[in-house]
Design a protein around this nucleic acid. Structure first.
Lengths: 246, 246
DNA sequence: CGACCAGAATACGTATACAATGGACGGCAT
DNA sequence: ATGCCGTCCATTGTATACGTATTCTGGTCG
């Protein structure tokens, strides 16, 4: 009955992120994982933020064991960085990593477009249009965090339509990391995806025109990358030398 | 001093996979991880094999906590499957997954070839030629398991030369999974990579001919995939009926 | 003779307790 | 007054113990 004790204390459930759906069951960890990963993707947790194990365990009402498992999963997805003996913190992507991620998205997402165009169905198109609409509304309403998450979800859903689960997983991972990159190198007020880009892309896909969709996706990703201000932040102590010796 | 107790008992060290380099230090987990992952890639642990936590903890002389961490990491790389309440077992890839993996390799590895050709250096070429030679020797000597691991390492090293660490990680993951696929769907005696394919590929890369290297890689991967006998295996108990009723 | 149910054993999931390490603050010496 | 060193605290890493579910086996009933 140890599991129930946390539920009995009730404080954990009150402060949990999603009060409605935290069952006692085994999907509890999944729920916590999504709470944390959403918070990172939505920039509620900013790069560099420390994630202490016992703080998280207290917030979510589970013991440190479960938190550690979730933290390790997030670390393998490179959303958090695990420093030995120092704990976990939200990953701060370097400029090199940012370039790698966008190059990878160029290759994979663009390469997937022809197959996506081939498999596009009216139902899927409708669902994607809904997502694009909600993203536009969130953007207009000033809810940046919701817009970022919806944008990543749009790209992920699109990749999933290709039928290749492995590549879709890769794309989802890349989109999550892109959110982090936007948090570090993005300019406030000018979010990555233009408001109507996703709708335009959908039009090409509904026409079954994979080639134009591929070219458009390429421009789309290039535009996002170009909107970033990539400048290697100061690293460690060495920059102090070049700052004060100048 | 709890850590030392296992070392004192000495039985763990005697039966450990790599007796030489298991320090007490924090890289112990890394060593165990590689022991298990190598065993899977080399088909010493076959798909479907159960991986009991306490058995592993006894073999390696660490407690179940550390084993669980390693098992979860392997699960995220899809080398082992974690069934709730049932434990861990070596993943048995489905035919669909096999197709996804090889399609993904087509897209990523082929797409990487031009950049690899551009960045190829004499030193890197020499290292790759050594790996190809060792793979050929292992194949000739009948050491299938070593050849499989070297082949995966060759493809991974090649991808790493592109300079894109993210895509290189993806390729390494795909190569590991490919080893599993070969174990399930490969024909004994006819391993995936032809013995001189890797050498031929290296020639194109050394010439800086990215286009031909890309085309060759595409044929190379298609050849491997074609050499598999993809047939959905029987699932569960029903196969016993059709085996013994025949 | 076969199938189903029950009990026991085995193995996983979770929490908690303990140990070790790294950082921070305060004191002391120069 | 400042710089260095020692001690304390905070936080993670690891192990172990307990609870629970699943499975295998043995017995009984149809």
């Amino acid at each position: 009955m140890n599991q129930r004790r946390a539920a009995t204390e009730r404080k954990a459930n009150e402060s949990a992120g999603r009060p409605g759906k935290n069952g006692d069951g085994p999907e509890r960890h999944e729920s916590i994982y999504h709470s944390i990963s959403d918070a990172i993707i939505e920039h509620r947790l900013k790069p560099g933020a420390r994630l202490r194990e016992d703080a998280l365990s207290e917030v979510f009402g589970v013991s440190r064991t479960g938190i550690r498992k979730i933290l390790q999963r997030l670390a393998l997805e490179q959303l958090v960085t695990l420093t030995p003996r120092r704990g976990a913190s939200v990953t701060r992507p370097t400029a090199d990593e940012a370039k790698d991620v966008f190059d990878a998205r160029q290759m994979i997402e663009c390469g997937l477009m022809p197959e996506v165009a081939r498999r596009m169905t009216p139902e899927a198109a409708q669902e994607l249009r809904d997502m694009a609409r909600r993203e536009r509304e969130a953007l207009k309403g000033g809810e940046q965090s919701a817009a970022i998450k919806l944008s990543a979800a749009f790209h992920g859903r699109l990749a999933r339509l290709s039928g290749n689960a492995t590549l879709a997983d890769f794309v989802e991972r890349l989109c999550s990391r892109s959110s982090l990159i936007l948090a570090v190198y993005g300019n406030a007020g000018h979010l990555g995806c233009e408001s109507h880009d996703h709708d335009d892309l959908l039009s090409f896909l509904e026409q079954g025109n994979g080639e134009r969709a591929q070219a458009f996706m390429s421009r789309h990703l290039k535009a996002i990358e170009a909107s970033l201000s990539i400048h290697e932040e100061e690293e460690e102590t060495p920059d102090l030398y070049q700052i004060f010796s100048a």
